[in-house]
Amino acid sequence: MRTYRPFLRGGSLLLLVAVVAALSCDREVGEERTMELVPLEGSGPVFSLTLEGVGFSTPESALHDDVADVYLVANINGNAAEKDGNGFISRVSPGGEVTELKWIDGAAPGVTLDAPKGMAIVADTLFVTDIDCIRRFHRITGEPYKELCLEGATFLNDLTSTRRGDLYFSDSGTAGAPGAVYFLRQTADVPQKVVLADGTVLEGEELGGPNGVFADRRGLYVATFGSGELFHVTPEGERLQMMGPSEMGLDGIVSMEEKGFLFSSWGDATVYWIQAGGNVT
């Protein structure tokens, strides 16, 4: 469930931090989390950094703001499906210093943020998935904008933007309320469920609980938690299976461009690398 921005200044060092943060969410709610930055071999200088005991509470995702060169960390701070008004977003410097623990604070007057998960930036707007709504904030000031709430949504999860500023986001669903994958055009006010070229709608139990999403010029990539699958939706609307089904409980996914993809697995607490040739390590 998350969006990342490669590479240094903060680039490849952060790619695994966000994925590793996702893997930590199977711990007890409220337990202090650890985020570890580890570069892929050959992707940059050998460097590691662990952020521990800094106040994070159920950190769900991380996003690099390329313009400000700062990392944003979404903290659920409680139950991932509970509207408790105490979620927050932290700002972290490239060197690992938490400059503002609660830069956006759901407990602050005028701010609504319950259990933030996926994030994406388009121009000067930060989009954040939050249970059944997409919250909007100013990228620099954190000022809240008008929110977008979806009737019937139960567990909005990951969020990704295209170069044109369109959004894709996942609803992982809950028991009795199967999930779906949505598309929101930049110029639209109402999102639509993604429909394949053959008319199949990406929704329902057969979708397997969509979690991580990532979009680039090659199309949309979806990782599912329930069915442990990874698939690609081409720009022509064709679904191509990349992996699974499995018991891996897939979570975040991010493109490494010509180097392939990274994705995380709750099932075995591992970050995997799908190389360009298809090998998985």
Rank of each mutant, 00 (worst) to 15 (best):
F47N: 00
D158N: 05
W273I: 01
V98D: 03
D124M: 03
T174C: 00
A188T: 10
T99D: 07
F169Y: 06
G277W: 07
S61E: 07
L220G: 11
M243N: 07
L37T: 04
G78I: 05
G209H: 07
F231P: 08
C25F: 02
G142M: 09
D130I: 08
A22I: 05
T50E: 07
E31Y: 07
V280R: 08
V67P: 00
L72H: 02
D124T: 13
E238V: 12
E31K: 09
G44F: 04
L113A: 09
G176S: 06
R27E: 15
G152N: 10
T160R: 04
P210I: 06
L63H: 11
G53Q: 03
S172T: 15
N79G: 13
F7R: 12
W103H: 12
R218D: 15
P178I: 06
L126R: 13
L14F: 10
L49I: 02
V111L: 05
V195I: 14
D66K: 11
T125Y: 02
P210W: 03
M256I: 14
D166L: 09
V38N: 05
L16E: 03
D66F: 07
G260F: 10
I253E: 00
V98I: 04
H232C: 04
F225Y: 15
V67Q: 13
H232T: 05
S12R: 07
T141R: 12
H138Q: 09
Y182H: 08
S161F: 03
P235V: 14
S255C: 04
G11H: 03
L220V: 12
V271C: 09
E247N: 13
N75F: 09
I104P: 08
K117A: 11
D189I: 07
R2A: 09
T224L: 03
E203Y: 01
L150M: 14
P144L: 14
P109W: 11
V194G: 02
Q241F: 01
E147A: 15
R164Y: 11
Y272P: 00
L8T: 13
V128Y: 09
E143T: 15
K193Y: 01
S172I: 10
Y4D: 10
L51D: 01
L113Y: 04
F183Y: 14
D166C: 12
H64Y: 08
E31D: 11
I131E: 03
H232D: 02
P94N: 01
G237I: 10
F261M: 03
F231T: 10
D158H: 02
F261H: 06
E205F: 08
D105E: 07
G118Y: 05
S43G: 11
H138G: 15
G208H: 11
V111Y: 08
V233D: 04
G252N: 14
S246H: 10
R218N: 15
A276R: 09
G208L: 10
T162C: 13
A108C: 09
D66H: 12
Y145R: 14
I274C: 02
F155P: 00
M248N: 09
G209F: 05
G173R: 00
I134H: 08
P144K: 13
T187I: 09
M1P: 07
T187D: 15
